[in-house]
Amino acid sequence: MEQLETFMVESPDAVGAKTTKTLIQDVLADLSLNRVIGRLRVFVDPVEPVFIFAALLRLGTPAIRLKDFAKVDMGALGKDEVKIELLREAFTIKLLNKLWEKYGKENIVQPDKKIIVVKTDPIKELDVLREIVIEEPQQEVLDRLIDAIALRIIPEGFRVRKHELSSSHVLFVASEDTLKPEWLEKAKDIIESLRRSEDNA
């Protein structure tokens, strides 16, 4: 998949638009967000003043749960414990941290590199443990994206903001003054046009 198939900064002020484009490129590169944004359109009118940032997102892998990389079973017969057998070691540190937080260090035993035993009621906890979320790449990316847009790209003085955020798009309208309905309309139009070009491609 190509990165940034559409990247437009529109403004009545041509010099400003060019500098803003460089600025956005710098920020996206700094926070390694280039692959996350598929299509991006920005509209700035400093006279109004309004700043509209609309982008279609391409978020990566969904959340990783314990059952995705480990076998979770009852422990030894007659004991209150759950046995976790790791198939991949990549997430062990994060998993251990989560388990320590939830059950306490004294209740976690790791007799072998790939085996973790949790001392808890297996009937109640087995399914909970299977579904426990170890890593959320999407959430991390979204956090970075908000950091980039809200804290670095939108001009600082534009403190009145309205935003929409979903797993497929992000939309920010910002201004120094009260937001006008026509700007919100325009922002919707921009997102729609991005969606259309995505569908046509």
Partner: peptide
């Protein structure tokens, strides 16, 4: 002795 004001991108602003 002197102040340098570092402002932004847009002429109007």
């Amino acid at each position: 002795d002197l102040a340098v004001f570092i402002l932004g991108n847009y002429e109007h602003c």
